[in-house]
Design a binder for these strands. Structure first.
Lengths: 260, 260
DNA sequence: CGCGGTCCTTGACCCAAGTCAATTGGCCCA
DNA sequence: TGGGCCAATTGACTTGGGTCAAGGACCGCG
């Protein structure tokens, strides 16, 4: 999306110096763009801002970070110093149990904020891993604090984003705690469809960025179960599925699965 | 706890006028106490504040609301206008599926903040129900906004409380998505013990405020399973349980259940 | 081009947890 | 003081989803 706007030759030629941290960070690139020029505005931080704060934001510029598929944006235990806004690509977040078990806790799309979990303790409580080559806007927390301290509407918007995350996680708890496997998969597909639609993509035709195993982890089931349910939904003419490519044939049918 | 401080005759005689809303709200009582006098300080909003903002808070006074066991603090769909701080008693939060299924998403103790889920959409996304007779501090959101707008440390502290909630929910997702029933129950007991300890109660001797059904809902299992696991833990000499009264006999044993 | 790796699908079998049902014990209050 | 109600326990049985295993498709790479 917005990548086009910013992917000028100058930006593409910026050298990425890998740091020696264990998450193999890349330095934020010099890539810059004011929020006022960002196509994600209506989904992102400054959304809903009126004149004055918007003008302030117009001058604001945050560094970006480019991630290759599989690369970590941050890892559990690392010092928290910034939150992140996905600009392009998809990012998953994962929390780990000491014994190695892990749980995918979220799949984050352009416009969504990441990393607020680190604020509580000063260290991140989850890993964030790019699923595609991704571009992420880095908002240093002290910057954000100052902005929201100075512009009340920024503050309010920030609170709203926090709250959104809380509501999202509540819904995941509901899904994990009270729904059966088929309902979870159906809810997952419907949710994807909705969020992709809001970003201008087809509501019925998309590619899963996650493997069956990752989907299973997100939904609290095993990859074989995910696979079987996809097959079953296909047989029932609710979806067509080919590897990671999904076509929703009957939104109503899917709604029926979770509705009852 | 702090209730004693405030339960002066004048306050106790304040009339509670039930409103006509479907959650049968009581008006915030006129009960007042500055945050600087509150025994929950180190757990609550102004915690960690340095001189200046603390002085500001010293002047701050919020209304309280008394809830009888079973009474709702807020309900899903109601207009959001305040967040709440539990002062005494225990409060559960519940999210509902259209078909009537429900999921207990949290059990909240004194010092914990509630209701931030309403900020995202302007309406609460969950129900909050008192489990005991409880006393709750009502912080109108616009008040909070102003405070955190004026005192930067308040803002930071508020963000930290948001973040805490996000981390808590992440952990619940991990529990629901990746742990087996016995591990969940063990993690639940250990978590209760920890939080009660932080509040000055015994780490090993406490009463569950939830029924088996509510515990099951919180942990994503049926009440019979909860009951069986309690019995099993008792047979294994990890706990002693009599109705709602729990005594942890072997913390290490419980840790062993979830550790492996 | 062929080899190894990862991802996906499907089948057969099994078990953890759900379902259904009976019983007990408190507790409220008529 | 006893009847009704609700919470909890426990047993017998069922089942949804996990486990294990085999095989196929599709890479990227030497």
């Amino acid at each position: 999306m917005l990548a086009q706007l910013l992917a000028t030759p100058e930006l593409d030629s910026v050298a990425f110096r890998p740091r020696s941290e264990y998450s193999a960070r890349t330095e934020p690139s010099a890539a810059q763009g004011s929020c006022s020029g960002c196509r994600l505005q209506e989904l992102c931080l400054p959304s809903g801002l009126s004149e004055r704060p918007l003008r302030e934001f117009a001058a604001v510029v945050f560094p970006h970070r480019r991630l290759k598929a599989g690369q970590a944006l941050f890892r559990s235990g690392e010092i928290f110093d910034a939150v992140y806004l996905v600009r392009t690509g998809f990012v998953k977040t994962v929390v780990l149990l000491e014994d190695g078990r892990e749980q995918v806790t979220g799949l984050h799309m352009p416009g969504e904020m990441l990393g607020m979990d680190g604020l509580a303790s000063g260290r991140h409580a989850s890993d964030a891993i790019a699923l595609d080559d991704s571009d992420v806007c880095v908002v240093p927390y002290d910057r954000l604090e100052t902005l929201s301290y100075e512009a009340r509407e920024v503050q309010r918007h920030l609170h709203r984003m926090f709250s959104h995350e809380i509501v999202r996680e509540q819904r995941m708890m509901l899904l994990l705690g009270s729904m059966r496997a088929e309902e979870r998969v159906s809810a997952f597909l419907l949710n994807l469809s909705e969020r992709l639609t809001a970003r201008g993509y087809s509501p019925s035709d998309f590619v899963l960025r996650l493997t069956r195993e990752e989907i299973g982890s997100l939904l609290g089931m095993k990859l074989e179960t995910v696979s079987r349910i996809f097959s079953k939904f296909q047989k029932a003419a609710l979806i067509e599925i080919d590897g990671k490519h999904v076509r929703i044939v009957s939104i109503e049918g899917l709604r029926g699965v979770v509705g009852r």
